[in-house]
Design a protein around this nucleic acid. Sequence first.
DNA 1: GAATATACCGAGCAGTGCTCCGTTTAGCAA
DNA 2: TTGCTAAACGGAGCACTGCTCGGTATATTC
Lengths: 210, 210
Amino acid sequence: MMDTTAKPAGDSMRSDARRNYDQLIAAARSIFTEQGTDASLREVARHAGVGIGTLYRHFPTRTALLEALLGQGFEVLRADAAELLDAPDPGNALATWLRRFGIASTRYEGLPASVMEALRDPGSLLHASCEGLRTAATDLLARAQRAGQVRHDLDAGELLATANAMAWAARQASGSGELTDRYLTLLMEGLTARDGAATAAGGAGPRLSG
Amino acid sequence: MMDTTAKPAGDSMRSDARRNYDQLIAAARSIFTEQGTDASLREVARHAGVGIGTLYRHFPTRTALLEALLGQGFEVLRADAAELLDAPDPGNALATWLRRFGIASTRYEGLPASVMEALRDPGSLLHASCEGLRTAATDLLARAQRAGQVRHDLDAGELLATANAMAWAARQASGSGELTDRYLTLLMEGLTARDGAATAAGGAGPRLSG
DNA sequence: GAATATACCGAGCAGTGCTCCGTTTAGCAA
DNA sequence: TTGCTAAACGGAGCACTGCTCGGTATATTC
């Protein structure tokens, strides 16, 4: 079985390789953000000022390139979560982070099934990177649960999956992300009617902001 | 501007055209279900026993073909919703229908952005077909709201979008749909902790079942 | 400065979506 | 039955894609 993962960008790379690697990542970020993840790889290479062969040398498959991009985003979110552990209100901290997570997770349109598969595959680089996210989210979630603000029968995986889905739906429905907050609120509060009036404006639940 | 929508399959078609149309639809349903919506159209044509030119004559674009398929599915769901209006418990009826809706909406993997766009475009055939779904869902939703089982500040569009998202997430997370019920439950009940113990097993909320 | 491992690059292959137009045929009128 | 024609069929062909392969250039080491 052939290796289809990108070799990690170590310090042992030759200088020209390192430069091209960085330019490819930058070009891919820009083009995939604008055109979706099925954009032409030739164009990515062109945009990076590099031959198509060089692109494939660094990233033997489109998925490998996407994994490298996503991994960087995961790292930012992980740091965000760690920081929010110090915020005063655990519920609000979680809600705030979910919002950022949702926005980031919809940055690239049309992530192919191969990437989703890589997320599930324990052997992949992306899985490890995602595991970091998951543990960070676990901490944030556990704190909100201890504070009695979030249901206890919920794990971080479910939280990430459903929040991601809300952000995705918001983007599908409107073409941009303006509905993200509304949908995330629906997820947090639920569709089922409550005895109290928690759904009224200015209610006591965690607020989505920032 | 050129017309990219499939001409409706009226009774005025020539017999061979009608036959080929039906065979194309059947082939597309089978292949798109198995391989996802980016399967080769040449293969669809081959599977239908028809030249590639014939496929394009009936469906000038991949989106047109998908629209025809989706439209059929929408019609089934619409009839389902109308039938469930007679079910005894409005909340359960809604939950049951959402489950079917979720399963159906994830039948074809990787619906391209063009289809989502068509759903939003008031001029498209698919939009009209989707509007039928929306009004059917509106009836089902209104009944549950009148019964006090669902929050009142929720419209059918939000309901469909978020339920679809849950089904999508369930499929992404597990590769199949075994988590669909769990995620839909999270959406209905919400993540936020309740004063009562509504999240306990056997609670009083609407139940998701067949 | 020479040697060499490493990286670069783009022509080329097989596949794709979609078009165009010559060929065939279904349906109808004589 | 036959002849006519509008309609439908079909596939070669174009421009593109993802990806490979091996000749060429270059960064690094001695």
